[in-house]
């Protein structure tokens, strides 16, 4: 009796094994998404999946969910946000790049897309995806405790020159965008800073409030609460124009130091072979949604900046980013090739 059970068990197993062999030609590792072959003319005819390459609860996730809710109105189809965290976003974005190119799987991409290759984490870059629209951009903001002995960028640099290597600047992890920002500040101002990496921007800000580091270079969204509470002050932002979140703070250039725009950003992409007419439909829907009052209110209450770019501008922007980080990473000796 027992033996026959075993045989049956093994039989079932072998049937299942055959099933695998039968579909062995399919290379996709994870085919969870509801993407299907839709008719191009009546796009979209069914629900769309949006991949968020971060875990539930983060700023990217919140942005994706808030945006999805508004885009639904313009596309007439529901959008489900799926979190695929891991590998600095490479897991989710790679899956987005390899999805069926029919427009039913879109990906919320983050600045890391143009950095992963230089970091040595993944071979993914922006060329493997087709840009749809850019939604948000948050520049690095040099922020210090409210009682720090410097009130301007110039005074900060002077202080750093008098105390070389003593100023501790917290960032969101080695090789993260905020680390690059601090390194770029050190390079442009010719000062020596001690870079302290944290697991993300929030712990770095906590350490700044606790007085364990002297400055952070993270986005205004991350420090907004503490700015409002009067615990911190932002000296300048690394952008070519002022931020809507903290309009009183000057840009680096205004404060007397030439600087590139160093910012985190979020946008929408689709797989490379997606037909152009579908990209256009998506682009228009996403840009309209990002202009809705509800979305704007959500973004501003979270300290997130809205920056809209159409597909071609977004594409050019990503290429520019890619080249800049390539140079920057080589210069800093980061990356692991």
């Amino acid at each position: 009796m027992k033996k026959s059970m075993k045989c049956i068990g093994l039989f079932i197993v072998s049937v299942l094994m055959l099933a695998i062999a039968g579909c062995g030609n399919d290379k996709s590792e994870n085919a969870s998404d509801s993407a299907g072959s839709g008719d191009k003319t009546d796009f979209p005819s069914k629900a769309i999946t949006m991949i968020s390459p971060t875990s539930a609860g983060g700023g990217t996730d919140a942005t994706a969910r808030a945006l999805a809710a508004d885009v639904e109105k313009h596309l007439g189809q529901s959008i489900g946000v799926v979190n695929k965290p891991g590998g600095s976003g490479s897991v989710g974005m790679t899956e987005g790049a390899n999805a069926k190119p029919d427009g039913y799987t879109v990906t919320m991409v983050i600045a890391e897309l143009t950095m992963l290759e230089h970091m040595g984490v993944s071979t993914l870059n922006q060329d493997q995806m087709k840009a749809v629209a850019m939604i948000n951009l948050d520049p690095a903001a040099l922020t210090v405790p409210a009682d720090a002995p410097y009130d301007t960028l110039e005074e900060f640099i002077d202080y750093a020159k008098e105390h070389p290597g003593e100023l501790q600047v917290g960032n969101a992890g080695t090789g993260s965008i905020w680390h690059v920002a601090a390194e770029s500040l050190a390079k442009n101002a010719d000062i020596e800073l001690n870079h302290v990496p944290f697991e993300g921007a929030a712990p770095a800000v906590t350490a700044l409030v606790g007085g364990h580091v002297d400055a952070v270079t993270v986005s205004p969204a991350e420090v907004k609460t503490q700015l409002d509470a009067g615990n911190l002050k932002t000296l300048a932002i690394m952008s070519d124009k002022r931020s809507d979140i903290i309009p009183d703070v000057p840009t680096f250039t205004e404060a007397g130091l030439e600087s590139e725009t160093i910012a985190t950003w979020r946008g929408i992409t689709v797989p490379n072979d997606t037909p152009d007419e579908i990209v256009t439909i998506l682009q228009d829907a996403f840009l309209k949604a990002a202009d809705e009052e509800g979305f704007k209110k959500f973004m501003s209450s979270n300290g997130l900046g809205i920056e809209l770019k159409k597909a071609d501008e977004f594409n050019a922007f990503m290429d520019e980013n890619y080249d800049y980080y390539k140079e920057m990473f080589a210069e800093l000796g980061l990356g692991n090739k």
Partner: peptide, 16 residues
């Protein structure tokens, strides 16, 4: 701290 991928055997799933 250093951002170097350890014991990942080149798999991006393991990098985080």
């Amino acid at each position: 701290i250093g951002g170097f991928p350890r014991f990942t055997f080149g798999m991006s799933e393991l990098s985080s």
